[in-house]
Design a protein around this nucleic acid. Structure first.
Length: 196
DNA sequence: TCTGCGATTCGCT
DNA sequence: GCGAATCGCAGAC
């Protein structure tokens, strides 16, 4: 178990709807004093500020919480929901508030450490949901908000190329009217760690 | 293994 | 106050 070489800034400079599927198979890595944890990204969702009623930044709403989405792509956007932390990759050019939610991982390094952070869980229950993977990886909202995925301690590196990617409506946004049907959820076909 | 429902914190209005 | 990009548990099959 060693360090990896983070993907460069240029990787994030592609349209959100292209970045979201291209993140699949990439490796999310977190280096902490306790050790390294990592996992392959197997499920993502795109959120596109201006036109997307399901996004926090809908209608370009700029607040303390959504501020980071207006910055350059590659920044870290964390958000809390019912005591859970959710991890997002800021996408699109500065001034365009878009992001990709990381929904599920397939654990690679540091599985024993993940198990200490989420005791008494089956292997598959470690990272098969957006709040769960943050727990397993030790990701905290305050500490990581506004950071950058291009450098340690929390970064993304290349992994593998998925054989088949599937697309469908996003999860958990029933009040988003027309936006709830946008097929902006992407996952690796047949992967056991996909949340649904 | 899958589905449905209730808990409960924080940021925004 | 309100409502949410969720989780975990209970109960069915």
């Amino acid at each position: 178990m060693t360090s990896y070489e983070p993907l460069e800034q240029s990787f994030y400079e592609q349209p959100t709807l292209e970045l979201a599927p291209r993140l699949l198979g990439c490796l999310l890595v977190h280096e902490t004093p306790q050790g390294i944890t990592s996992g392959y990204i197997v499920e993502t969702e795109a959120y596109r500020g201006a036109l997307d009623r399901a996004a926090h930044s809908f209608n370009n709403r700029r607040t303390k919480r959504t501020e980071i989405m207006f910055h350059e792509p590659g920044h870290i956007y964390t958000y809390t929901m019912h005591r859970q932390v959710l991890l997002n990759v800021v996408s699109a050019a500065a001034g365009t508030p878009e992001a990709v939610l990381i929904r599920a991982l397939e654990p690679k390094d540091g599985i024993p450490l993940m198990e200490t952070r989420r005791p008494d869980r089956k292997p598959r229950e470690l990272t098969n949901g957006p709040g769960k993977l943050c727990q397993a990886m030790g990701i905290e909202q305050i500490a990581h908000y506004g950071g950058n995925f291009t450098k340690p301690p929390l970064y993304i590196t290349s992994g593998y190329t998925p054989e088949q990617v599937e697309t469908g409506p996003r999860i958990g946004i029933p009040n988003a009217q027309e936006a709830k049907d946008f097929p902006w959820r992407y996952w690796v076909h047949g992967n056991r760690y996909v949340s649904k």
